[in-house]
């Protein structure tokens, strides 16, 4: 006779029991299970064009809704500098979409610190057309004590200790960090607008995972600081950023595109 299961009256822990996955991946397990491993070679210091699917847990339950995408293109410049171009969009409620596009000029340092940037954002309505009144164009410059931003002709200053990087720059930087690197403290401009102080990155777990039918050896970094939840970056042996997660968000490499 099978024994009846004991019922715990409390709500279940939403994290699925997936000891085969790192803790920071488990909440996205259904999406991870559909992951297609990348093929070919990868040079993190070279020219590349990468896309990630943005995942989000809804209602704190494991799942992995895919409300958006992030694309970053890297072009190396002279003396170790680089230019990054980014495009990202996410679905808002009511089927509006929010998008940001722009370019970053980056310093030749371990954090891909930002030097100058341009970006534009807008909300598209349900029919796909932009709501022009929400469009914002801006230019920014990193300074010795933070950043200056010209947003629609208005000047803003953000005070921060250098170095100052961005969340998109870090998607590039972690791919070139040596496995034992631990940069920080540094400032991060999330979406080139929201200043996060006192960030640090340190090496974290290394694991061999079975992803898409392929055994992949991955190493990771974790970023901790003000204004963010612990952010994990998982890289394959060539340094390619396979997966990142922060709180309810995940970024899964979309190798198929």
């Amino acid at each position: 006779m099978p024994q009846p299961k004991k019922v715990d009256p409390r709500p279940v822990v939403a994290m699925p029991d997936r000891p085969d996955l790192p803790l920071s991946w488990a909440k996205f397990a259904p999406a991870i299970d559909a992951f297609v491993p990348p093929t070919g070679t990868f040079d993190p210091a070279g020219t590349w064009d990468m896309r990630w699917r943005i995942l989000v847990t809804v209602g704190g339950m494991a799942g992995g809704a895919q409300p958006g995408t992030l694309r970053i293109q890297r072009q190396p410049g002279p003396s170790g500098t680089a230019k990054l171009a980014f495009e990202t969009q996410v679905t808002l409620g009511g089927l509006q979409r929010f998008s940001m596009t722009g370019t970053l000029s980056c310093a030749p340092d371990a954090l891909t610190s930002v030097t100058t940037w341009e970006m534009e954002s807008t909300v598209q309505d349900i029919k796909g057309g932009p709501i022009e009144s929400t469009r914002v164009r801006e230019r920014g410059t990193a300074t010795t004590d933070g950043a200056e931003i010209d947003r629609a002709g208005k000047k803003f200053r953000l005070a921060a200790k250098p170095p100052l990087t961005s969340n998109w720059s870090l998607f590039d930087a972690v791919q070139r960090l040596s496995p034992d690197a631990a940069p920080g403290p540094f400032g991060m401009l999330e979406d080139l607008a929201l200043l996060r102080h006192d960030q640090r990155i340190s090496p974290d777990e290394t694991r061999v995972l079975s992803l898409g039918g392929k055994a992949m050896r991955l190493r990771s970094f974790v970023q901790i600081g003000d204004g963010i939840l612990p952010t994990h970056y998982w890289l394959d042996e060539s340094g390619r950023l396979i997966f990142a997660s922060c709180g309810l968000r995940g970024y899964m490499l979309d190798a198929a595109t």
């Binding site: 409300p67 929010f98 954002s121 709501i131 929400t134 309810l248």
Partner: peptide, 16 residues
């Protein structure tokens, strides 16, 4: 519009 997850939509809302 916003969403039910502030982590990824609050910036969109405030920026718009």
């Amino acid at each position: 519009d916003g969403t039910g997850q502030g982590e990824y939509s609050d910036h969109a809302v405030s920026r718009a």
